[in-house]
Design a protein around this nucleic acid. Structure first.
Lengths: 319, 319
DNA sequence: ATATATATACTCAAAACGAGCATAACAGGA
DNA sequence: TCCTGTTATGCTCGTTTTGAGTATATATAT
């Protein structure tokens, strides 16, 4: 292995900590005034940390006073140039991203850390009300330019396909899981400001999309959203975001917040109940209007039963 | 960030390169005589490698003369003690595992690298003929001891549940995707020899299961198998393992080799054809016996169509 | 021709899914 | 009290998908 010194790198640990507050999917960011938002992060210390995950928990604990419950590793990014360094640092940084889920709680107690709606960083991902206007008004026209500016015909074809796969058309609809593919496409097309910061593309006069984040943190957040949107469907992870008891509509709104789509209410209930994911408590809430709804709780036993299922998305047709 | 030197680690890149040869799922290992089998691997060089994946491709190219097609990152392991070091090295190694798929080809041209049936390392994972005898004869009795030796009652409960979830019972059957969970359970129970090598457990007189591998490579291979078994079902990745044309039975045998289970033939055909994954070529094979079968090819277009599906597992009941 | 082996077509019932109608239980105002 | 708006919950119904076969076709070997 020749000279070991030349193989030396620093490992950055970053966490997308997610919570759903009042129907908004939120991510915890550390917000130094003037600087871009960042995910809680810190370097892996091979002396102090037994595992990567325990290192992450330590850093997050220090920075946010949060004790993480559910934690899952996402991906390890090592692209040259996509993790910009702070002045004075010179090591190459390889970045391991994590997803963490936590129940909603009051404001975060740590200084400078705040919960932010994640659609602030990905405004094209929220289809709950309607198809976001920014797609037809800005994204697709700009991506057409990107296709047109391809160096040759076959590259243009590839780009056109990617745009179609990412943002859909009449035949193939919207796939809410392709969050990372869409972000990477916008990055390559120079439509998010990280691209110019990383020296990729001169974006003069182009309207840039969404808020930017430090380092490669928006990329990690995109990975986190994609993973959560997918995993939710086949593992009961949403319940990590719910309080001890909740109405089925609250559960539905949480799922919708994450997936960024609307669901068919009656079918959603049927799926959730038939799969044995919840059980009624016999108690009811006191709504400001309308019939009171029963409060349910997560049936923790499902984790010990069949290959515990997730919350199927029973999509709502455009009514 | 205090003293940067203390955050310095080496990143090891390892690849589980998979191919299916004559109904056997194979993995390419480098086999130095005397030493344990290892996956092709090498350190990440931040100067020479632009991305982690390009670093991996370089190493694999040098060690196996293979030009990888499909490559996907699996997981990053950094547990202290699970990557044993070579003499003379002292850096902490963090290990990034990859899965690569390649079509069957002749013997590998590189010295010391050979294709090995992966069930050699995981004999309990092949249910194609029948439930492997080793499960009832060795694994389950040994795991009962493991449960019984728990320090307290609640720990024993947890262990019992894990055993049930991993190896199934009457209610919950076999879940072929839990490859990693099973390996980790056996590791903790001291039933695979890496556990004693890593100084975890004194396994005196216990029959150890499967062939051992270098470093944490068997753990990476378990992750690779699990990922492939899962991904196959919702993305058309099996075709990376198939030649340009093949019969539907050959395709089925490949899927079965990977999943380690038997499938219902007629339903398998129906699913594969209905999803538009293949198209007939009009040519037929010349079998040693039985009716000739049409040769099919992968419809590459599906990649540009709907959220391209995978090969559903239409399970065969025990007949 | 007969037996054996594989390929392929087709059937049929059960389960899952997608969409929507109908009814129930609350609040507030006419 | 009764009507209206609002949310909760129950139920139906046609379609699709799945699981498990049965039936038939086309080879080879004897």
């Amino acid at each position: 292995m020749t000279n070991p010194d030349k193989h030396v790198v620093t490992i950055g640990l970053s966490a997308a900590i997610v919570s759903v507050v009042e129907d908004s999917p939120c991510v915890l960011v550390v917000h130094a005034s003037g600087a871009d938002d960042a995910l809680p992060f810190g370097p892996f210390d091979p002396m102090a940390h037994r595992t990567l995950e325990s290192g992450l928990r330590t850093w997050v604990g220090e920075q946010t006073y949060l004790d993480l419950g559910y934690v899952e590793q996402l991906y390890t990014f090592g692209d040259r140039g996509r993790h910009t360094l702070n002045p004075g640092e010179n090591a190459r940084v390889v970045s391991v991203g994590y997803l963490a889920l936590t129940k909603q709680l009051g404001d975060s107690k740590a200084p400078d850390s705040i919960w932010r709606d994640w659609y602030r960083y990905f405004p094209w991902e929220d289809w709950r009300i309607d198809k976001p206007a920014v797609i037809d008004e800005i994204i697709l026209p700009a991506l057409e330019d990107f296709v047109a500016s391809a160096p040759d015909r076959s590259c243009a074809e590839l780009r056109r396909d990617r745009v179609r796969l990412c943002f859909g058309d009449e035949d193939i609809g919207w796939d809410e899981e392709k969050v990372l593919e869409r972000y990477e496409l916008l990055y390559e097309a120079g439509l998010v400001s990280e691209a110019s910061r990383d020296g990729r593309i001169a974006t003069d006069g182009v309207k840039l999309l969404g808020d930017r984040m430090m380092f490669d943190h928006r990329r990690i957040l995109a990975t986190a959203i994609a993973r959560l949107r997918g995993k939710m469907k086949y593992r009961p992870v949403v319940f990590e975001l719910m309080p001890a008891s909740f109405t089925l509509l609250e559960l539905q709104r949480t799922v919708e917040a994450i997936s960024g789509t609307r669901l068919h209410k009656q079918n959603f209930r049927r799926l959730v109940e038939d799969q044995g994911l919840v059980e009624g408590t016999g108690k009811f809430n006191v709504p400001p209007r309308g019939r009171p709804a029963e409060l349910f709780r997560f049936r923790r036993e499902v984790l010990r039963e069949r290959p515990s299922p997730g919350v199927k998305l029973a999509r709502q047709r455009t009514p």
